[in-house]
Simulated assay, not measured.
Amino acid sequence: MIEAVKFWNEPNNKSHWDLALDPQWRAFSAMVRAAAPAVRAENPALTRVLGGISPIDPGFMSHLVGMGTMEDLDAVAVHGFPLDWNHWPLDAWPERLAEIQAVVPLPVWVTEVGVSSFGAEEVQAFGLARTAQLLSGRAPRVFWYSLYDLPRAWPATTRHREAEGSSYYRHFHMGLLREDGSPKQSAAIFPAYTPEFGICQWFHFEDPRLDDAVRWLRRLGVRRLRTGLSWADSFRPGAEAWFDRQMRALEEFEVTLTFCFTPEHRGVAPHHTSPPLEAGEYAEFCARVVKRYAPGMRMAGRAPSADAPTLRLAGSA
């Protein structure tokens, strides 16, 4: 079920990593350098991927290479949204990939690419078709972001919020499906690009869309799914039950599992973007999750059954 794990999400984006607390990414590098071997010790067959960067910045990647961040990784990842947020044209995708390939001696995955339907559904449908032309065969993994629109009642994960103007509201229109689950024009054409294209869909804690999402993924012909488990959520009451339910529901897909979000009480600052107080605590969380849901060959990729031994997911404070 789990084919890969990713360490964090968009570490060079201040919406996901507090650059004021870690301006040289030394804490981030230490965290990844602790987590990668911890995961390998639990299951060396899993592909270990650096959290997708946004913006696509070869200088940032060179900086991480110089700190030894990549030494125990198998791939790196990039995110791109040229029709919504990036300052480069859609047709520049091959060039953006080549910039990273030139500075990192690892495969480059595209773990988030998408187009919003904020202005018109026709724009999203065009963007999907053209993106598929540009990226097909150029990256080992491509994940379209996303399956669902973000519910308007949920804030987008960004530090800029409404100050971004229309850019902020585009966050809410990235799905192939509307908030109510009804399909957009892009949903009708997406099966033409599967199974090469996967889907990136984040599930919130006890997300009510989970079962419907599985049905839609099947309908669209999706085989590969990128999602995440939150280190911060692991301290919530009922976290173990929710994690088990989520992973069991997704067991038929080839999952790339992202580990991110610092628990407020374990960060240098009380925020999910903060560097952790101890890099080893993040590594321990990653290892515990792998041990439970992808423990080498012992469970052949199966999520635990209902009578599996209890495993405390959250580390001690």
Rank of each mutant, 00 (worst) to 15 (best):
residue 6 K to D: 10
residue 8 W to Q: 11
residue 10 E to S: 02
residue 11 P to R: 00
residue 15 S to V: 07
residue 16 H to E: 12
residue 17 W to R: 03
residue 19 L to M: 03
residue 29 S to T: 12
residue 34 A to E: 10
residue 35 A to R: 05
residue 39 V to T: 10
residue 40 R to K: 15
residue 44 P to W: 07
residue 44 P to A: 10
residue 46 L to P: 11
residue 60 F to G: 01
residue 65 V to M: 15
residue 66 G to Q: 04
residue 77 A to C: 03
residue 78 V to S: 00
residue 83 L to H: 01
residue 87 H to Q: 14
residue 87 H to C: 09
residue 91 D to T: 09
residue 92 A to N: 10
residue 93 W to N: 02
residue 95 E to R: 14
residue 101 Q to I: 11
residue 104 V to W: 05
residue 108 V to M: 01
residue 108 V to Q: 00
residue 109 W to C: 00
residue 111 T to K: 00
residue 112 E to V: 00
residue 115 V to E: 03
residue 118 F to M: 00
residue 122 E to S: 13
residue 123 V to H: 09
residue 123 V to F: 05
residue 127 G to K: 03
residue 130 R to K: 15
residue 132 A to V: 07
residue 133 Q to D: 15
residue 141 R to M: 08
residue 142 V to F: 05
residue 145 Y to F: 11
residue 148 Y to I: 09
residue 148 Y to D: 04
residue 150 L to Y: 02
residue 153 A to V: 10
residue 154 W to K: 14
residue 157 T to C: 14
residue 157 T to S: 12
residue 160 H to C: 09
residue 162 E to R: 07
residue 171 H to M: 11
residue 173 H to K: 12
residue 173 H to E: 12
residue 178 R to M: 13
residue 181 G to Y: 02
residue 185 Q to W: 04
residue 185 Q to A: 09
residue 187 A to H: 05
residue 190 F to W: 07
residue 191 P to C: 03
residue 193 Y to D: 09
residue 196 E to Y: 08
residue 201 Q to A: 03
residue 205 F to V: 06
residue 212 D to A: 14
residue 212 D to K: 11
residue 213 A to T: 13
residue 215 R to E: 14
residue 216 W to M: 03
residue 227 T to N: 04
residue 227 T to S: 04
residue 229 L to I: 09
residue 229 L to P: 07
residue 231 W to D: 02
residue 232 A to N: 05
residue 234 S to H: 04
residue 241 A to V: 15
residue 242 W to Q: 08
residue 246 Q to L: 13
residue 249 A to L: 08
residue 249 A to V: 08
residue 250 L to R: 06
residue 254 E to K: 14
residue 255 V to N: 08
residue 261 F to P: 09
residue 262 T to C: 12
residue 262 T to P: 05
residue 268 V to Q: 08
residue 271 H to N: 12
residue 272 H to Y: 13
residue 275 P to S: 12
residue 276 P to W: 07
residue 278 E to G: 01
residue 283 A to W: 05
residue 286 C to V: 15
residue 290 V to G: 05
residue 293 Y to K: 06
residue 294 A to L: 06
residue 295 P to V: 04
residue 299 M to E: 15
residue 299 M to I: 10
residue 300 A to I: 11
residue 301 G to I: 14
residue 302 R to M: 15
residue 303 A to F: 15
residue 306 A to W: 11
residue 311 L to R: 12
residue 312 R to F: 08
residue 315 G to K: 07
residue 316 S to V: 13
